[in-house]
Amino acid sequence: MSAERAALDPRTLSGKECPGVETVCVDLADWEATEQALSSVGPVDLLVNNAAVALLQPFLEVTKEAFDMSFNVNLRAVIQVSQIVARGMIARGAPGAIVNVSSQASQRALANHSVYCSTKGALDMLTKMMALELGPHKIRVNAVNPTVVMTSMGRTNWSDPHKAKVMLDRIPLGKFAEVENVVDAILFLLSHRSNMTTGSTLPVDGGFLVT
């Protein structure tokens, strides 16, 4: 289950491309709406928490609105959606796997990213706590921590060669991640090939975190 905050647009998922996929559109910042929207979804055995917002402000200019929205979407929604899915798994006695999409920003300070970095740092610890408490129910929980990913948004935000060079100079492999790099890591953590892996944070960062 994966969604952007505003909505997962059904127009991006055609029946030909993804037969059998059912889309649910919901504002994950709205607790009651999310609860209602997901109440009839399932059963779910594999969950990917991929929704996030990045509202960048210098520390001295961080607003309450940016703080609340960021934590509501990047952290609180993960708790809520994961609770709903995990309760369903436990009720069915079914094993499962959850992957939280975190960021290299959880472990490195980046200018103007005070709130975003904080949400991702909290998400890494939440991942460990979920792994600890859900493990006895045979539910594994891990995180992936990508660098800049070349989505359409990533290409737009990092199209400035000077801005991109500052980040690329800190990545030993000298390149940003492609979408499939992150997808492959997520698929591994969802699969039985990682059935002894839980509570981990897996960098997909070209070595950024070793510098």
Results as ranks from 00 to 15, higher is better:
A52H: 06
A29E: 13
R193E: 14
M69Q: 15
L190I: 10
L110M: 09
G88E: 12
V26K: 06
R155N: 12
V99Q: 03
W158A: 01
D160A: 01
E178R: 12
A105R: 11
I79W: 15
I98W: 09
A29F: 03
V101K: 03
S82K: 07
G174I: 08
P136T: 13
G121D: 03
V78Q: 02
Q104H: 09
F67W: 15
P58D: 08
H192Y: 04
S118G: 15
E65H: 04
P43N: 13
A3M: 08
S40G: 11
E178N: 07
A66W: 03
P203Q: 09
D30H: 05
E61A: 13
R87M: 07
T119A: 04
T211N: 14
L202Y: 05
S194Y: 12
D184Q: 15
L134R: 06
K165L: 10
V182S: 04
S118W: 04
V148C: 02
V204G: 02
T127R: 06
L60V: 11
S118K: 06
L187G: 00
V44S: 05
D184Y: 03
P136A: 13
S194H: 10
V183E: 02
P172I: 07
R140C: 04
A97H: 07
C117F: 08
V99L: 06
H113M: 05
A143N: 02
S194K: 05
G42Q: 05
M1H: 06
E178L: 09
P146V: 11
T34A: 06
D160K: 02
T201D: 04
V210F: 07
C117P: 00
V166I: 15
G199Q: 08
S200A: 15
H113P: 00
L75I: 12
L168K: 09
Q83E: 12
D205T: 10
L132K: 13
L8A: 13
